[in-house]
């Protein structure tokens, strides 16, 4: 059942991503991107990361994409203008992206067992022993709830980087305001 739902979401994600990059209109592209993000949120749920899924919907599909749409409409470039590059560029793109897919598609067959076997170099490695941290995290989630499972490392182990991101966001705000102002 889980796998079927996964593949449904995966198909939606891939198709809408493809449409996103092929749509002439920037508005449609943005909307297809929103679709991709929603289906990714569904996949996050399937992978047991419900909190991330919620944030994905709120921040990405909500805030960021609204910002995009807002800018598109502000600049009034929503209507279609041909903006695909020349045929030589299209050919190069097909080749490069094709190679990229071929290289990355090998990941398709990976399971925790095979990953453990490759990392340790022995075919009979026990994935449970190797990936004990993942087990512990799942038990933590089971004990403290989904939010607690994320919050504990975020505010304990990664507290300093977390605080650093607040500085990053502040500077991004200042930067965006300065850049967007007509006259400084």
């Amino acid at each position: 059942m889980t796998e079927v739902v996964f593949y449904v979401f995966a198909t939606i994600a891939v198709v809408s991503a493809a449409l996103c990059i092929l749509q002439r209109s920037a508005v449609s592209a943005a909307l297809w991107l929103v679709t991709t993000m929603f289906s990714l949120a569904g996949i996050y749920v399937l992978l047991g990361a419900q909190f991330i899924a919620a944030v994905q919907v709120l921040v990405y599909a909500g805030a960021v994409m609204v910002l995009f749409l807002f800018v598109i409409m502000l600049l009034n470039i929503g209507h279609s203008t041909p903006d695909l590059r020349g045929s030589s560029m299209v050919g190069a793109t097909v080749v490069v992206v094709g190679l990229l897919v071929v290289e990355l598609a090998t990941l398709w067959r990976y399971t925790p067992r095979r990953l453990a076997a490759e990392i340790t170099g022995t075919p009979l490695a026990n994935p449970a022993a190797l990936f004990a941290a993942g087990q512990a995290a799942q038990q933590e989630t089971a004990a403290r709830g989904v939010v607690g499972g994320v919050a504990a490392p975020l505010f304990q182990q990664y507290l300093v980087p977390f605080e650093a991101t607040s500085v990053l966001l502040l500077s991004a705000i200042v930067g965006a305001v300065v850049l967007a102002k007509r006259k400084v």
Binding site: M89, V96, V97, L100, L104
Partner: peptide, 19 residues
């Protein structure tokens, strides 16, 4: 686009070396 293309070619090549 050109810069990205070269970047992508480089990324593919690095992946090829790694994998």
């Amino acid at each position: 686009g050109f810069y990205v293309l070269f970047f992508a070619v480089g990324a593919v090549w690095i992946l090829h070396v790694l994998l």
